[in-house]
Design a protein around this nucleic acid. Structure first.
Length: 418
DNA sequence: TCTGGGGTCCTAGGACCC
DNA sequence: TCTGGGGTCCTAGGACCC
């Protein structure tokens, strides 16, 4: 059995912890630049304020009802999250932290599951001030359903969803759009076939689901039919890419301002890489014009570039990001959003060393063979050899292929090579 | 006037190799 | 000169989540 613990209205609840006078009052938390609503207390939900709605559309509701408005404070939310998660961890044999405010717990073999869940709930509330709901069921997707019921019906924030008939009954009341993994797009498609509820969805032919909704859709369907397809991942794999991006407070046209933004984001990416003790093999820059400006040209640029060596070095990442920016930037356009992605992330102490170069003259200048000699000397063994030349398919550049080399002496290698 | 940020997974199709 | 198919890697884009 799987239990899903989900903090209620997490960001709003965090603000309340430090200001109990806000209890029972409507609260909203806003996104960057105070543009969108990203969290609401129950009172704010009751006023009809929707998730993700732009603030200007609900300004009148906020004013008329004295809704308390907060800008995001991610340092606070992150800290509160760690406290909640470490408590959950201490009370459960296995947990998977799924997001800032959610965790799956392995409840296999636990007797009196509702009583245990209730104990967890009360402990979290007492120790952190954060209210949580817990849904328990046989699969992850069903535990999501159980959690939805726990919140909806205010059953003390608990729901144990077992028994075939009970499950079917619950699925009959659940709109397809509320199923975990089925978003607005698939909901619209399913509704078009008159599939309105989760119950309707599980009646569908499996081949049809596979064809229309890929393997993910089929797994979701099986999970709703009590066949587990997603297991608890207690040791999540490291990130595959890291992104830092922001919308501007308005639009930006000048290349200088864009460079400042890209540089800031690139620096942040490098910091995140180092804090994870990782290196990235490519840098991407994203530029977006204002998608709501129907008159302007919509340009969603996305480009990548190989780094000569996997790196987490700030200077190198900033440099590459700015080169990309210059190649993508179009004069005359104004941009609404800019970002930097670093990807193909590998662990810092398990670096596969490839030597790339963009043209043969450059290789000669850098004296690749000399570099290799020094590298091999440094490593204390004659291990890295040039295997041949070729065009790197991924990046479309000429490349000297060398023996892959896994090393923990990353700092030294960088110093020697650069 | 004002519309979030940070991720993951899957697939189709092209390029390339043998 | 023309012709083939399977496997794999890679990219772009779509869909989703919180």
């Amino acid at each position: 059995m799987i239990a899903l613990a989900d903090c209620n209205n997490f960001y709003a609840s965090c603000e309340r912890v430090f200001n109990p006078g806000l209890n029972n009052k409507p609260i909203v938390v806003l996104s960057n630049n105070d543009g969108c609503i990203i969290a609401r207390s129950n009172e704010a939900k009751d006023l009809g304020i929707k998730m993700g709605e732009p603030v200007f559309k609900v300004k009148h509701i906020i004013k008329e009802n004295n809704v308390y408005v907060f800008s995001t404070n991610f340092a606070l939310y992150g800290d509160m999250s760690s406290r909640v998660m470490s408590l959950l961890d201490s009370m459960s044999p296995e947990i998977e932290i799924y997001s800032i405010d959610e965790a799956f717990m392995n409840f296999n073999g636990i007797k009196n599951q509702l009583r245990v869940a209730n104990h967890i709930r009360r402990t979290i509330k007492k120790s952190t001030g954060i209210p949580i709901s817990i849904g328990i069921a046989k699969t992850k997707t069903l535990s999501k359903v159980a959690n939805y019921i726990a919140k909806k019906q205010m059953k003390r924030g608990l729901c144990l969803l077992t028994g075939h008939n009970n499950i079917l009954k619950a699925l009959k009341c659940l709109p397809v759009s509320k199923i975990w993994g089925i978003g607005s797009r698939y909901s619209r498609i399913l509704n078009g076939y008159n599939i309105k509820t989760a119950y309707d969805f599980i009646q569908l032919n499996e081949e049809w689901v596979l064809k229309k909704m890929t393997i993910m859709g089929l797994r979701i369907q099986k999970e709703l039919k009590e066949i587990p397809c997603f297991s608890i991942d207690t040791n999540p794999s490291p990130k595959k890419n890291i992104c830092t991006s922001r919308s501007f407070d308005g639009t930006v046209g000048s290349i200088q301002l864009m460079q400042e933004a890209i540089t800031t984001h690139a620096v942040r990416c490098a910091e995140k890489l180092r804090s994870e003790q990782s290196c990235a093999r490519y840098v991407s820059v994203i530029l977006k014009t204002n998608p709501f400006d129907t008159l302007g040209e919509y340009y969603n640029g996305y480009k990548s570039i190989a780094l000569s060596i996997p790196t987490n070095d700030t200077i190198e990442i900033v440099h590459k990001a700015n080169i990309l920016l210059k190649s993508m930037y179009k004069k005359g356009l104004t941009y609404k959003k800019a970002g930097v992605i670093v990807g193909d992330i590998i662990s810092e102490n398990q670096v596969q060393l490839d030597l790339f170069d963009t043209d043969e003259d450059h290789i000669k200048r850098k004296n690749l063979y000399g570099t290799l000699d020094r590298l091999n000397q440094k490593l204390g063994r004659d291990k890295i050899q040039i295997l041949g030349q070729g065009t790197n398919k991924r990046w479309g550049i000429k490349q000297e292929r060398v023996t892959p080399c896994y090393t923990t002496q990353w700092d030294q290698l960088l110093k020697v090579h650069c």
